[in-house]
Design a protein around this nucleic acid. Sequence first.
DNA 1: TCCGCTTGCAAATACGTTTTAGCAGATTTT
DNA 2: AAAATCTGCTAAAACGTATTTGCAAGCGGA
Lengths: 355, 355
Amino acid sequence: MKKRTLISDIAKHLKVSTATVSLVLNGKAKQSRISDAVAQRVRAYVDEVGYKPNQLAKSLRTGKTQVIGLVVEDISNPFFAMVAWLIEKQAFERGYRIIYCSTDNNTEKTKELISMFQERHVDGYIIVPAKGIEEDLRTILREQIPTVLFDRFLPELLTNYVVVDGAAGTSAATQHLLDEGFTNIAFVTTDSTQTQMEERLHGYARVLEEHSLLQTVKRVAETKDAAKAIADITAFIQANRQCDAIIFSTNYLGIYGLEAISRLELSIPTALGVISYDDHDLFRLYEPAITVIAQPVERIAQHVIDILLEELKPRGKVTPLSMQQVVLSPALVVRKSSLRNGTVSAAPSKKYRTG
Amino acid sequence: MKKRTLISDIAKHLKVSTATVSLVLNGKAKQSRISDAVAQRVRAYVDEVGYKPNQLAKSLRTGKTQVIGLVVEDISNPFFAMVAWLIEKQAFERGYRIIYCSTDNNTEKTKELISMFQERHVDGYIIVPAKGIEEDLRTILREQIPTVLFDRFLPELLTNYVVVDGAAGTSAATQHLLDEGFTNIAFVTTDSTQTQMEERLHGYARVLEEHSLLQTVKRVAETKDAAKAIADITAFIQANRQCDAIIFSTNYLGIYGLEAISRLELSIPTALGVISYDDHDLFRLYEPAITVIAQPVERIAQHVIDILLEELKPRGKVTPLSMQQVVLSPALVVRKSSLRNGTVSAAPSKKYRTG
DNA sequence: TCCGCTTGCAAATACGTTTTAGCAGATTTT
DNA sequence: AAAATCTGCTAAAACGTATTTGCAAGCGGA
């Protein structure tokens, strides 16, 4: 039960002041004209006793916590888990720590989380914004705290963000289904009006309009209840037997959709062509493999962390924050589930780049 | 760019001392004989200006951060993601925040993470321990910081832990396969010697020994390279054509295994019966659905958080920590992949409780 | 009237750092 | 020889809160 060593213990033992120790430890020995001899002695003894500064005290004094708050919709969603993991890795290497939290797309919970991060004085934010948090974000931005949104953005707010061109993905998917000879394509999405979901819908709608084809759109109510969602989709499919293909606007809807299709004993792609947004183990390994619109997770993570770390660099007082908006292209990964004849012509899986 | 309001601002405005404000805010008004009138005034004004105490200063002063460090193997693994999510939810409600981190089962990274948590003065730890961190854990325990391990434990260390009876799960699975008429059962596991992995192997071995049957065990080297692991499993299956069933010791091996089996164009369960540890969307929806040994994630999370919060309660000085060891039973969820005749007799999916 | 007890609050210290201003002596410049 | 500059370090003041101790006033009892 011995006490932690403090900077004052170090100072006392070496018969120097705490200021000296602190300056050496923070690499400011040179500019503060601490002699190399003393600096060496300090470093040696610090290593010897394994002294680690108290980060709380440090943060309180400097106002910097070296912590980034990461607010995603649902950390157990493989898409977010992957992006979060990549971001964490990068940030860790550059001395930043990440605190994750899941919002479940709940406005109130998101606000609470942001408020908690504020209290903990995170140095920066990475946020997948839920609806209705414009005010909270405005507060953060006003305080000049570096912030990057991803996956979607808030149209009325000028912020950094990294998103994927959802319309390009779904229009490529729709076009691909038409090329394969499917003629009556349905689109299953959520009832949320988040920017990226609306875009995905537009991509689908645009292509069908161009071909003067009928649109069949189902909006599944957001719910934590998988069974309810599956039942909802099942009913939709039954009520729309004329449809010969479905595009799901996000990974979990795709998974629910597969379960629904499986229960209805409809065979893919013979009875129903299928494409889902987001890649996933399940889609890759399902029999038949499911064609997906894959988001470039590595590049999303890379851009997010690059923008954030750039802003975290100590800047001149008046350097304005230059907001960056990045729009990345998804890739259509064609697998059996969207092929009329059931086999991929050339390669077992070819990728189309969109955009 | 206005400054945050401080407790001193509140005090000044109300013409009371900061002590008074602090006491009221921390619910110690009564015991410090602050009059109700003053307490009301304080609360009213605090609400009005939306004052939030600086948690850093608070923590520095009290030594409590209200933060729990959660160290898992891989947050993108659905099993850990689920448990983490459940734990987070519970902790949040009781005023604690969670910091997640992934170790990738890397001893060095685990040590770094624990060290980082120490620096940040987390109030408690929840750890999925990698090998070789006994010393670091001992340090934590010596300092009486509440800690709970889960998924596995370190045999030489007396700690709280919550684990699942791995042997019960695999022996039930093995027995089930034998009952179904499979005679040559292989076991695919990792090359790690973590307690829970060894137990899972033992459960399998024990049942086969009882029946005097040959054991066929494959240890797949731990790697980040999925392709390599899949190739490894593919080779194993090809080299052991006599096997008519396989048990995978963990979810990602099961997924790799399915990919291998699919590439070899072996049909399940006709050519090969399959059971995997851990449930997963993929296993539930795969065609045929995969029988799994499901871990009781809700109960794991519940026990972990209960034990930890119990220990976090302010205790009398000398109350010794009573270490709790909880062993939960997994459930065998029988699906088509382990049934000789290809159909489940009664219900489409029945559960056996083990233990 | 004096003493002790209660009530209601404030002063002051501590938590463990970082950082600025400045001091004393040595060295150089004028 | 005095003045200016440089060198190497330290004293002390923050950062924003919690908490212990104590002080003054009021009150009842003797």
